[in-house]
Structure formats: structure tokens, C-alpha cells
């Protein structure tokens, strides 16, 4: 959409290929490509190779033993639980928020958008801190929580809250630009012709935002699984109870159990790589649909 606009503002004849004499020398090109590849290799690929190398250093048997360890499996289940809840809550929020912001005019819209983005701009440690202040010992809520025996800080609910918080805007953020670019004409037409709200959403809005939604969910899941700082503040590190996979990595590494720490890391790394591949596929399909 934006591309069309540029086209109109700056009409151009012929191809979009850059003219031969502005292409720059071949040497510069080779140097820059080499520099980029080297930089990314050292900064991104080598850490990944390290994780794999260290995981299998003592053989496959030891690796299997490390990843099927009871504490690790427990941590994996807790991580998945927090991730699923975060994805569900943030998807519901993302859909409603993006709908409200893109389809209606109201005062304070900009402010609302800023508030929604707030969780990703604060440090994860501060994200953890605010939940400790809200539900921790010095909070006035603490005595009520104690009465009904519902612990949040240093317990599973705290971990889930922290995870939802740090991934809060992830889905609305992906959908919103798509909905805003699409405008409101189609929905207005459908509403005038008598379509009910859910029908409008399902038949008109959803097809537009499908890929953005999937991408948002993927991003949200990735961040939720890997969240470390905020969860670390709220966890209390009770082994086998409030330890997620990233925290398990920290515990093992701190105990000088390097091989198991990397083995657990490898699970998270595989998830991250899968997420990147899904992201590339979703983006590729989305772009092709956009071009059609």
C-alpha cells in the first residue's frame, strides 16, 4: 500500500534496477558482504554452535539423561503452561484492542496505544518488581491473599503474570498496522447490509489479519518461553516447583553443571530456531498474498 503511494509521488520510467554507474564498485560490495557474514557468524551462529557442541560433549547418552531429568521435564511443563496462558490472554487482548483502536475514533487513542506498548519498554527486572510490589509482603493485598491461601509472588501465578506482562503488546502490535491500513469501509458496508458483528469479524476482518495474527502468536510464544528476568524476580527458584526452562539453565550453570545447562538450553534453542523458520514461512506467504 505504501509502495503504491511512493510510486505515485515519484513517477519513474523504466526498471527499478539501479543504474550501472550507481551500483558501486565490486570491491566494496565484496567487502561489505564479507563483513556482514562474518559479523553475523561470530555474533549469532557461533553461540548456537557452542550450545550444540557443549550439549553433546559427553555423548548422546548423557545428553538424553540431562534433558529427561525430572526437574527439567517439570520446568518444561511449567514453561509450556505459562506460554499457552500468555498466548491465549494476549490473543484475546490483541484482537479486541486492535479492533477498538483501528475501527473507531475516540479521544485518547494515542495515549492508549502508548500504554499498551509500555510493558516492552520497561526492563524485565522492573516488570518483576512491580508484581512483587503489588502482591508481595508489603502490599495491602498480601493479607487477603494469605487468607485464601493464594500465593502469587514466589509461586506459579506470579510466573504466569510476569510472562503475560512481558508479552502483552506482542499480538495487538502485529494486527494493528494491518487493520489500520485496511480502513473501515468494508466493515461499514457489511454492517449497513445487516451483518452481525461476529460475521463481520469472521468474514471480513479475520482474512485480512490472518498472517499478522499467526506471526504475532509466534512472536508471543517465543518471548514467553524465553522470558528470564521478570520470571526470575517472581520465581523464588524453588526447584521442581517454580522453575521454568530458562531458570533451570541458570540453576544448572550456577552449579557448574555446564553440560546439563547447555543440554537444557538446546531445547530452548530448537524452539527458537523453529520459531524463526515459522516466522520466515508466515512472512513469505503473507507477502505473496499481499502481492496478489
Amino acid at each position: 500500500m505504501a509502495a503504491e503511494k511512493t510510486e505515485r509521488v515519484m513517477p519513474r520510467e523504466g526498471s527499478t534496477e539501479i543504474h550501472a554507474d550507481t551500483k558501486g564498485s565490486k570491491a566494496v560490495r565484496i567487502i561489505l558482504i564479507t563483513l556482514s557474514v562474518l559479523f553475523l557468524f561470530i555474533m549469532l551462529v557461533m553461540p548456537l554452535i557452542t550450545v550444540i557442541y557443549e550439549s553433546f560433549r559427553k555423548g548422546f547418552g548423557e545428553y538424553l539423561k540431562a534433558v529427561t531429568d525430572d526437574e527439567t521435564v517439570g520446568a518444561l511443563l511449567l514453561t509450556l503452561e505459562a506460554t499457552v496462558i500468555a498466548v491465549i490472554i494476549n490473543t484475546v487482548f490483541g484482537l479486541f484492542a486492535a479492533w477498538a483502536i483501528s475501527k473507531f475514533r475516540f479521544r485518547g487513542k494515542k495515549f492508549l496505544v502508548t500504554l499498551i506498548d509500555l510493558p516492552v519498554t520497561v526492563s524485565p527486572i522492573i516488570a518483576g518488581l512491580i508484581f512483587v510490589l503489588t502482591f508481595g509482603r508489603q502490599s495491602f493485598l498480601y493479607s487477603y491473599l494469605e487468607e485464601i491461601d493464594f500465593m502469587i509472588v514466589y509461586a506459579v501465578p506470579g510466573i504466569i503474570l510476569a510472562t503475560v506482562f512481558v508479552t502483552f503488546p506482542f499480538i495487538s502490535r502485529e494486527i494493528l498496522p494491518v487493520l489500520e491500513a485496511q480502513g473501515t469501509d468494508e466493515e461499514e458496508a457489511a454492517a449497513l447490509m445487516g451483518a452481525r458483528s461476529f460475521t463481520i469479524f469472521r468474514k471480513i476482518t479475520l482474512p485480512h489479519i490472518k498472517w499478522a495474527l499467526i506471526y504475532g502468536i509466534v512472536l508471543c510464544a517465543a518471548r514467553a518461553m524465553g522470558e528470564f528476568g521478570a520470571v526470575s524476580v517472581l520465581s523464588g527458584h524453588l526447584r521442581g516447583q517454580t522453575v521454568t526452562l530458562p531458570l533451570q539453565v541458570e540453576i544448572l550453570f550456577g552449579d557448574n553443571k555446564y553440560m546439563p545447562a547447555f543440554a537444557v538450553s538446546s531445547i530452548l534453542m530448537i524452539m527458537a530456531v523453529v520459531i524463526l523458520i515459522v516466522r520466515s514461512i508466515v512472512e513469505f506467504i503473507g507477502r505473496r498474498k499481499g502481492e496478489e
Binding site: 556482514s36 557474514v37 553475523l40 561470530i42 549469532l44 551462529v45 557461533m46 553461540p47 548456537l48 557452542t50 550450545v51 557443549e54 512472536l219 517465543a222 518471548r223 518461553m225 524465553g226 522470558e227 528470564f228 528476568g229 526452562l245 530458562p246 531458570l247 539453565v249 541458570e250 550453570f253 555446564y258 545447562a261 547447555f262 538450553s265 530452548l268 534453542m269 527458537a272 530456531v273 520459531i275 524463526l276 523458520i277 516466522r279 520466515s280
Partner: peptide
């Protein structure tokens, strides 16, 4: 190369942390 750029967003920070530590420690590859 393009797809790799997002890796720091997808890779959990704790994993990146221990991998970098082991790479750059005195006995690490780099």
C-alpha cells in the same frame, strides 16, 4: 542471513548468556 537477524529476539536471553560466556571465557573458542 535476513532470517537470522531476528535470532536475538527468538533465542532466550539465558541461553544467549551462557553460550556467549562459554565462547568468550579464557578457555572458550574466541
Amino acid at each position: 542471513l535476513d532470517g537470522m537477524i531476528e535470532l536475538p529476539f527468538a533465542l532466550p536471553t539465558a541461553v544467549a548468556g551462557i553460550a556467549l560466556t562459554s565462547l568468550y571465557s579464557d578457555s572458550g573458542w574466541i
